[in-house]
Design a binder for these strands. Structure first.
Length: 267
DNA sequence: ATGGTGGCTGGGCCA
């Protein structure tokens, strides 16, 4: 069994103790992190390595920043840390060797987009185009590809609270949903939705307006799987206990469980 | 209610 998680921590330095208890209690093998909000130098390597994880970090000062932590050996790192032609730390990819087969793992932090009529929204759509291109290029390269992250898009009505299922709302506009659908159509699977077809669950709740208390959230954090990974998918869950803690991230971790005792080679 | 809270910082910007 292989447990793989994604979590937007909203500052790794603020959340380091919660991260350590989460990966220990949920027995996480690999985790993709977003919004670490620190430089590579500021990253708390020591505390995480003590738990047996290798750290691959692509940070920047004060904002954004992605990382991948793995209990299994990382055989290639710093792959394609820039899928968009700018300096923002929003994408990181590596290759992990796991009991004789390779996993290509990516951590992605899609721009929020601010509002539908903003320049930031155009950038969000452009980022999605670049992400699509990268994931399209990866398709079939390794059998097992896992792309976890904060996509800042809820795929369908069931993924947002009732007040929010509106074209004007950022994260639910048809153009950005279309970009996510295009990635799914290219062959990747939404691990949570395929294992929980009817569940109205969220992965993010605004800090403001009592959103958590009223359960007014959105499911915007996703684990996308290549077909050979999807075949091995046992379950996927959102650990919203992490959102209920004191000083939480505004996001909850998403976890998928893969069966690993399978010959992954198609040849 | 054009607000609200939280994290970067060290005054706003971003989410």
């Amino acid at each position: 069994m292989l447990k793989i998680a994604t979590w937007n921590v909203n500052s790794i330095r603020k959340r380091i103790d919660q991260l350590c208890s989460f990966v220990t209690e949920d027995e996480i093998d690999i985790i993709m992190l977003q919004e670490i909000k620190c430089t590579n130098e500021q990253f708390p390597y020591e505390q995480i390595e003590q738990l047996g994880y290798k750290c691959i970090v692509h940070g920047e000062k004060a904002r954004n920043g992605v990382a991948i932590l793995s209990k299994y050996p990382v055989i290639e790192d710093s792959l394609s840390t820039s899928i968009v032609d700018n300096e923002e730390a929003r994408y990181l990819e590596c290759l992990i060797e796991c009991n004789g087969f390779n996993l290509r793992v990516a951590s992605v932090y899609v721009p929020n987009g601010q509002s539908i009529d903003s320049e930031a929204f155009k950038y969000k759509l452009h980022f999605f185009d670049c992400l699509y291109q990268r994931l399209h290029d990866l398709f079939g390269k390794e059998e097992i590809t896992i792309v976890g992250g904060d996509y800042n898009v809820a795929p369908n009505k069931i993924d947002v609270h009732d007040d929010y299922a509106n074209e004007d709302k950022i994260g639910f506009n048809i153009d950005e949903r279309g970009k996510l659908f295009a990635i799914l159509h290219s062959g990747y699977c939404d691990a949570f939705r395929i294992t929980n077809p009817e569940s109205k669950e969220f992965s993010w709740w605004d800090y403001r307006e009592g959103s958590w208390q009223q359960n007014k959230g959105m499911r915007i954090d996703h684990i996308l799987l290549s077909p050979e990974a999807t075949d091995r998918l046992e379950k996927c869950y959102i650990n919203n206990k992490m959102r209920a803690k004191e000083n939480p991230s505004d996001h909850a971790p998403v976890v998928c469980v893969l069966e690993e005792s399978i010959n992954y080679s198609l040849k």
